[in-house]
């Protein structure tokens, strides 16, 4: 079953309710999804796994709404991103989207300082804003295209490009200053 495409597996789930097909999808995407959530949570492994599990359960429940307009991975990451933001909102009463961004940033810094990330990556990531960090991770680690990142983060492609450009500039400066060339 491992050789089947995501689309074939999704069809097996929606038409026949195949748990085995969904298990293959989970195994295929768990590492990248947990990595993505680790980058959002500042390296908190337990929290990332809880959020990843919630994301997979939500995806299972909403699978019949998947329209194949994007890849399954992009769709799954979008669910995970919303699950993460819901978690942040549930921790603290936040009024506006800016408040959420501030809360995400302070949450990340607090988690990152607790120490599960290596010091260089921790320092590099802390230089970035929440959106820059997410864009950089999705672009360089998960190799998502700009239109897919825009879909995950629900923002215009132009905004994603701006976040990427700013993040890239900050990271390049940091890396060059620290002897990575």
């Amino acid at each position: 079953m491992a050789a089947l495409s995501d689309q074939m597996l999704i069809t097996q789930v929606t038409v026949f309710g195949s748990r085995r097909a969904y298990d293959t999808l989970v195994q295929r995407h768990q590492a990248s999804l947990r990595q993505f959530l680790l980058s959002l949570t500042g390296g908190d492994g337990m929290l990332s796994d809880d959020l990843a599990q919630d994301s997979f359960v939500k995806a299972w429940l909403q699978l019949n709404t998947f329209k194949n307009k994007s890849s399954f991975k992009t769709w799954l990451f979008r669910i995970a991103y919303n699950v993460f933001y819901d978690y942040i909102r549930s921790r603290k009463e936040v009024q506006s989207i800016e408040d959420v961004e501030t809360e995400v940033n302070s949450f990340y810094k607090q988690q990152a300082n607790d120490g599960s990330l290596s010091s260089d990556i921790q320092q590099a990531m802390q230089l970035l804003s929440a959106n820059e960090r997410t864009c950089i991770t999705l672009f360089y680690l998960d190799s998502l295209q700009i239109k897919d990142i825009a879909s995950v983060l629900n923002m215009p492609e132009g905004t994603v490009k701006s976040h990427l450009a700013r993040g890239k500039e900050k990271m390049t400066t940091f890396l060059k200053q620290n002897g990575y060339e």
């Binding site: 947990r34 492994g45 950089i136 990271m171």
Partner: peptide, 14 residues
Amino acid sequence: LIRKFLQENVTQPD
């Protein structure tokens, strides 16, 4: 440079 740095420093969980 960025891609290499991230791939070397970030490991995907088992």
